[in-house]
Nucleic acid binder design. Structure first.
Length: 147
DNA sequence: ACCGGAAAAT
DNA sequence: ATTTTCCGGT
């Protein structure tokens, strides 16, 4: 019988946003073999049960944290950091700016934007992104030849 | 709210 | 190397 879980694209709720599982796979960081914050964010973003907490909104890759306290709480649970809060979580997000994983959408409260091209290339070279909506999502971002 | 330095923790 | 903690400054 055909397997069900992973693979394919768990799209459904947003035009243009389907995330291949590899986009946020659990283990993929050399330094820390722990779940990465941006993996976690992608994880929440993918489940409609968290639409009231965090969701895609606006431009491609743009998402808004509707309930900062709740996102921080969930992140704290995942990392076993009971005292996590949005102030600290957001500092971690700010560290992503220079790494070009994220950037802030200025003027929009609690809104950040993924740099898809970086996020994809950082973990996976070139799979068959040709027909992936994920690939199609990177309509812009002209930061040059990626570092 | 958001930023980013500094230091500590993992 | 990434994130947590703390915090002065905008």
């Amino acid at each position: 019988m055909p397997r069900s879980s992973s693979s394919s694209l768990c799209c459904s709720l947003h035009p243009g946003f389907a995330f291949p599982d590899w986009a946020y796979k659990p283990e993929s960081s050399p330094g820390s073999r722990q779940i990465q914050l941006w993996h976690f964010i992608l994880e929440l973003l993918q489940k409609e049960e968290y639409q009231g907490v965090i969701a895609w909104q606006g431009d491609y890759g743009e998402f808004v944290i509707k309930d900062p306290d709740e996102v921080a709480r969930l992140w704290g649970i995942r990392k076993c950091k009971p005292h996590m809060n949005y102030d600290k979580l957001s500092r971690a997000l700010r560290y992503y700016y220079n790494k070009r994983i994220l950037h802030k959408t200025k003027g929009k409260r609690f809104t950040y934007k993924f740099n898809f091209s970086k996020v994809v290339l950082v973990n996976y070279p070139i799979l068959d992104m040709a027909n992936s909506p994920f690939f199609l999502a990177q309509n812009h971002f002209n930061g040059g030849p990626l570092k």
